[in-house]
Computed example of a mutant assay.
Amino acid sequence: MSLVNWFSGALASLGLQLKEAKIVFLGLDNAGKTTLLRMLMDETLVLHQPTQFPTSEELSTGKIKFKAFDLGGREIARRIWPDYYATVDAVVYLVDACDKERFSESKRELDALLLDEALADVPFLVLGNKMDIPYAASEDELRCHLGLTGLTTGKGKVNLADQTVRPLEVFMCSVVRRMGYSEGFEWMSQHIK
């Protein structure tokens, strides 16, 4: 079963089959945003050049349609992020779990997003990508470096009526090995309003 079909099934099971969702893929350059989007579209693994310009893809299956935006992660590209996330339904924030030297830079960008009023009620799925590489950070290490220890909302099933805080969770994944991100999207699908 493809992730797109699974994702649409998860949304349908939540009664969201008639909704349209807008999701932005954010994170520093080389975190895997474009690779993940391509995997969600057609399950192909392609070597990509760094994203130069914002791209969007509409993915739909049956009555479910969502628009995903890959905005690039280079410093110059980050300046336009606010132009796109003002009306999003969810944020997928990717972190290269192997590039430990850039964790503080990634934390600064994530902190700015989490403090932005336009994203105050938006669920955040943080994906620690490249967990298949032996020297990648563990989930606990990534949470610590990103300042998320004790701030996430849990990976279990949720009751949307009981929510008083913004949904925020970390999942470790390997986009190239097709591991971990489906669980993250399943969690996120519970929180899309």
Rank of each mutant, 00 (worst) to 15 (best):
3 L>H: 15
4 V>T: 13
6 W>S: 09
7 F>I: 09
8 S>E: 09
9 G>T: 11
9 G>F: 11
13 S>Q: 11
20 E>N: 07
20 E>Q: 05
21 A>Q: 07
21 A>P: 00
21 A>F: 12
21 A>Y: 01
22 K>I: 14
25 F>D: 05
34 T>P: 02
36 L>I: 10
36 L>G: 04
40 L>V: 13
43 E>W: 07
45 L>F: 14
45 L>I: 15
46 V>H: 09
47 L>A: 12
50 P>K: 09
50 P>W: 08
51 T>S: 03
53 F>C: 13
53 F>P: 00
54 P>Q: 13
55 T>D: 08
55 T>W: 03
60 S>Y: 13
60 S>L: 15
61 T>R: 08
61 T>A: 14
65 K>E: 13
65 K>G: 06
66 F>C: 06
68 A>F: 01
69 F>D: 03
75 E>D: 08
75 E>Q: 06
76 I>G: 00
77 A>P: 00
79 R>H: 14
82 P>G: 00
84 Y>S: 04
85 Y>Q: 00
86 A>Q: 00
87 T>Y: 08
88 V>E: 03
88 V>G: 01
89 D>S: 05
91 V>N: 04
95 V>Q: 07
97 A>C: 14
102 R>T: 10
103 F>N: 08
104 S>E: 15
104 S>N: 14
108 R>Y: 09
108 R>H: 06
111 D>H: 10
113 L>W: 00
120 A>H: 07
121 D>C: 01
124 F>V: 03
125 L>G: 04
126 V>T: 07
127 L>D: 04
127 L>N: 05
132 D>Q: 02
133 I>D: 13
133 I>H: 15
133 I>A: 15
134 P>N: 13
135 Y>L: 15
141 E>R: 08
144 C>V: 13
146 L>R: 01
148 L>Q: 08
148 L>N: 14
151 L>E: 12
154 G>Q: 12
158 V>Q: 05
158 V>I: 11
159 N>V: 11
164 T>S: 11
168 L>M: 14
169 E>W: 08
170 V>G: 01
174 S>E: 15
174 S>I: 02
174 S>P: 07
175 V>P: 04
176 V>W: 05
181 Y>S: 12
181 Y>F: 13
185 F>S: 05
187 W>M: 11
189 S>F: 01
